[in-house]
Amino acid sequence: MTNQSEPYEFEFVAGEQNVYLFTTGIDIKYEVKFVPSSDYFNAYMEVDAEVFEMVISIADNLAGGRLPSDERVAPTIFVIFEDFFLAQRHVIVFICDSTDGRGKARHRKFGHWFYNENVKTDVMTKFDRIVVDGSNRIYLSLIMSRLHPNAGRIVEIFMRMGEEEK
C-alpha cells in the first residue's frame, strides 16, 4: 500500500528547459520545467546566480475538468526541486499564471505546498512579492537554497526588480 504523502516516481527528460515528468494515480500527467531565465539578474553580474523560471503544467488530463486534490503532488514537486537545484544552488523564480484570474489562488496553494514540504528539511527559503502591471497583479516567488553564497544580494535585487523602470 502506498503512503498518501509519498512522492510519485518522476522522470528527468532534460533538454534546454530541464523537464521533469510524473503521472498521478489517476493518470494526470504533470510537467515541471526549469527554464533558464538569468536575464532577471543580467544587470547584476556580481551576483553570479543561475536563475530559472519554474513552470508546473498539466501535460495530459484524460478525464478533463477540474483537478481533484492529490496529497502526493506537493511532495513530488518538492523532491523534483531538490533533485534539480539544491546541489547546484540554482535560484528559481516562480510566476503564478494569472491570465484566468486565479493567480492569487495558485500563489496561495504553492505557498502552502512549499511550507508544508520544506519544514521536513528546512533547506530552502522562499520570498514572495506582487508586481502590479496595469490592472494585472503578478504573483512571484523566489526560491533558493539557504546556503546560496549570494542569498542576501539576490533577495535584495528580487524585491526591487521593476522599480527602476517606474
Rank of each mutant, 00 (worst) to 15 (best):
D97I: 05
F52H: 12
K109V: 12
G65T: 02
G103L: 03
I92D: 05
D39N: 12
I92E: 01
V91F: 05
A63E: 12
P75H: 08
I58A: 00
F34Y: 14
W113V: 00
I56R: 05
V55P: 03
V79R: 10
M54D: 05
E82F: 04
K33V: 01
K29V: 07
A87P: 03
K29C: 03
I58P: 06
I26K: 11
V55R: 12
E71Y: 08
F78P: 06
N61G: 04
D97V: 02
K104W: 02
A43R: 13
Y20T: 00
L21D: 04
T23Y: 00
I28Q: 02
N61Y: 07
F78E: 02
V35K: 09
D60W: 00
T24L: 06
N42H: 11
S69Q: 12
F110P: 08
D48I: 08
Q17E: 15
A49V: 04
T76I: 06
D27E: 11
H107I: 08
L21G: 04
V73C: 02
E53T: 09
K29W: 01
P36R: 06
V79I: 07
H90E: 10
R108V: 09
D100S: 13
G101L: 02
S38M: 07
E82P: 01
I28G: 06
E53R: 11
K33P: 00
F114R: 01
L67R: 01
F85W: 09
Q88A: 05
G111Y: 04
Y40R: 05
V35E: 11
D70C: 00
E71L: 15
C96M: 14
Y44D: 12
G111Q: 08
G65A: 01
E71S: 13
G111C: 02
G64S: 03
M54H: 01
Y40Q: 08
I95V: 13
F84Y: 12
A74K: 08
F84V: 00
V91H: 00
R102H: 10
I58R: 04
D60Q: 12
V55G: 00
A87F: 03
E46F: 13
G25D: 15
D48K: 12
M45L: 15
L62T: 12
G25V: 03
I58S: 08
N116H: 11
G64H: 09
D27A: 08
A105F: 07
A63P: 04
E82R: 15
D48C: 06
V51I: 06
N116D: 10
D39E: 15
Y115H: 14
F41E: 04
L21W: 07
F110E: 01
D60C: 10
D27N: 14
V51Q: 06
V32A: 03
I26H: 12
L21H: 10
A63G: 09
I56T: 02
V51S: 05
H112I: 06
K33E: 12
V19P: 04
P36Y: 06
V73P: 02
V55K: 10
L67C: 07
V47T: 09
L86P: 01
Y30A: 02
I95S: 10
D48H: 13
E31N: 08
G101W: 05
K29A: 10
A43D: 14
E71Q: 11
F22L: 01
T76E: 00
Y44K: 07
F110L: 13
Q17I: 11
M45D: 15
Q88I: 06
D39Y: 15
A59G: 14
E50H: 14
R72V: 01
